[in-house]
Nucleic acid binder design. Sequence first.
DNA 1: CTGAAAGCGCTTACAG
DNA 2: CTGAAAGCGCTTACAG
Lengths: 332, 332
Amino acid sequence: MSISIYDVARTAGVSVVTVSRVLNNSPTVREKNRERVLAAIKELDYQPNAAAQSLAKGRTGTIGVVIPSLDDSFMMRVLAGTEAILRERGMYLILSVISEDEPLDESNCVKLFTEGRVDGILILKPLENEPYIMELKKRDFPFVLLDQHHADRQIATVMVDNVNGGYQATKKLIDSGAGIIAHIKGSPAYQSSHERYEGYKKALMEAGIPLREEWVAQGHFSMESGYTITSDWLAKGRKPDAVFAADDNIAFGAIDAIKQHGLRIPEDIEVIGFDDHPFSATLFSGITTVRQPAEALARNGIELLLAMINGEAKRNPAILLEPELVIRSTTR
Amino acid sequence: MSISIYDVARTAGVSVVTVSRVLNNSPTVREKNRERVLAAIKELDYQPNAAAQSLAKGRTGTIGVVIPSLDDSFMMRVLAGTEAILRERGMYLILSVISEDEPLDESNCVKLFTEGRVDGILILKPLENEPYIMELKKRDFPFVLLDQHHADRQIATVMVDNVNGGYQATKKLIDSGAGIIAHIKGSPAYQSSHERYEGYKKALMEAGIPLREEWVAQGHFSMESGYTITSDWLAKGRKPDAVFAADDNIAFGAIDAIKQHGLRIPEDIEVIGFDDHPFSATLFSGITTVRQPAEALARNGIELLLAMINGEAKRNPAILLEPELVIRSTTR
DNA sequence: CTGAAAGCGCTTACAG
DNA sequence: CTGAAAGCGCTTACAG
């Protein structure tokens, strides 16, 4: 507002070009002048104006993060990781929440880059693909898809190996001797729901256990869903030996229902969730789950994105991260 | 990058000034020209450059939101509300996470406004006051404190009436005939912890019930805390008639502990939490809690902030919002 | 109602 | 190693 680079130049006795060089860590500044400039900056408490820098440089130093929900512990972990990494680098984060049903195209997410507010976008939207991706691609704007597969292999993506996660969870249940292993699927709009189900089927098939569709329920990522479906089974006298829930919320609901029906966990029914929700280590004495590598997802995503922004094309823009089975008290 | 206001002016056959007027909804543009400009904008798929606009206008159209954690359902509700309101207004949100112990002064939060990246800041930091507030005040930069009292009555604040919330919760327990009403306090750094405790004491006093310090435990806002403290009491053979937990996380932990000790809720022990966590409506058949007005907090905060940015000084910059007792199954 | 000019606060070639 | 000049893409008074 008030004090500008000209003020600094004047009190340091150099030109604004030199001040700019000091600001941008250019090596071609005489040490004495650098010190003078630094002293003037400190004396005047000068901060360069971000808008002017952005306009002149063509870089904003901020990244857009598009996220479908602020009510999902996994996504919050990714968001927190992203924010922390950007902060370390002196960059900023513009948050854009796009609800599940709202098309990205019509949101302010598009304006985020057409107005040049951000240098790149991280899209954490594990939903079905949408036309906006093609729009971004067409405009050749840097973006990375997090937790979302895309048919176009050219598009930069960082994903979690949900199939393997589902496989590991189910295999653990098979190994512990469970006969009937039920599965409660997540929201159909999420790719991860299908992938975890694939892993479930794969483990069953590998063990020679036939898939029994009557033990696969279509749920969604919520506690209510796990509670309702499990209660339903139990009320009808149908008792599985184990439940693989597509996420921890579902698992919490399932466990709640099982306990209310007077059954014990893991003695009567084993339960495994997915995510490693903050509550999972404690609630119900700690639940067994498949921990998602949220921080790694954030870090890989940012690094890929920054590389793209800097024009460093990566050879393989598709990264697959492995989740990890965390065994606690809801399995044998 | 490529197409600018000059391109639009050329194809519309007017000057850039006229284009700028159309962009900014100035009424002094001949209808025919307005249409031409709009047509040219559409034809060229033009979007004004945000950095240039910010620089020329001295307004960025973005607000900074400072938040201590992304792992708190109440704060996430406030954040989601804030984002939605800003989106409606075509504004943007820069997210800055400042962890509990990290001093705000040294964070990028200060650069947020010294660099002119935002027009104002919403500080959701219900912690003890810190010097940065004086810094903001001194620079006369628009900011609003959310959920935080401040001694300086000139500072704009929007708060939740935690004292009343604690009072209502405790009164409910007294009314249902509970004899020993224990209280598990929240993290000491949070003002809300003390305020809810005040409400607890007030209700007790009003009912002529002596405060028994042995039934007040210093916890922190987490499930572990509620679990550990409650387990401890029960293990020692100390059974309260009711527990007022300073938040729902603590309540979840307390309930978990009570059930593990083979006691029934609410028959043996009643429990009330605070917040209305997303799980609270479902888990354990739904817990009784004090719902915080998160959306109202966000809306009031933004409106106050925007008024300040626009130079409209409010008469009374301190708003107090009332929480609401939500009765579910963990009380009688 | 419209436009020429100056300015917002920086950085980037280009000379020296 | 340093600085004068032009430019980044808009908007704001000021004349007309």
